[in-house]
């Protein structure tokens, strides 16, 4: 059910992000979401893409170090209280968020959650009647 996020290691210095986007662009990889976490020396670029297999092989050939990470992606209606509803479920179930980022949209936003127990999070969300996006839905965006 969960969506595969690709986490890529890059050095924290001028041009490294550009090198990565260049590789993706040259191989016609379409990104759906992107987030960058960094420390002084290095960074982790987290992306959702249209084609996970293809992107993996492109990154491998280009010599990148990356990892596929399961994330929970939730479609939230773009209205006040939308995100709050999801977080209420997580809090009630004692689910800890490692990090989150979003894909804004005109009527619907997609929020990407990284949690320890993806299965549990999905079960709780389903029980609360919240729609969870799958890879197909993300690819089709």
């Amino acid at each position: 059910m969960s969506v595969k996020q690709i986490s890529v290691f890059i050095e924290n210095k001028p041009g490294t992000m550009h090198e990565l986007t260049k590789v993706l662009a040259e191989n016609h990889i379409d990104m759906r979401a992107l987030s960058l976490a960094e420390t002084e020396g290095f960074g982790i670029v987290r992306i959702l893409v249209d084609d996970v297999m293809e992107t993996s092989s492109v990154l491998k050939d280009a010599g990148y170090i990356y990892q596929l990470t399961p994330v929970v992606v939730v479609a939230v209606p773009d209205e006040p209280g939308g995100l709050n509803k999801v977080l209420t479920v997580f809090t009630a179930a004692g689910i800890n968020l490692n990090y989150m980022y979003a894909i804004p949209g005109k009527t619907t936003a997609y929020i990407i959650f990284r949690v320890e127990d993806v299965k549990l999070a999905e079960k709780e969300l389903r029980q609360a009647g919240i729609h969870i996006a799958d890879q197909e839905e993300i690819s089709a965006l």
């Binding site: 020396g41 290095f42 987290r46 170090i65 990356y66 990892q67 990470t69 490692n98």
Partner: peptide
């Protein structure tokens, strides 16, 4: 050099190993 074995999506873990 970072290696696939040493890399993880968990930034805190990488920093701890460092």
């Amino acid at each position: 050099e970072m290696t696939p074995e040493m890399f993880t999506d968990d930034m805190g873990e990488i920093t701890r190993r460092q």
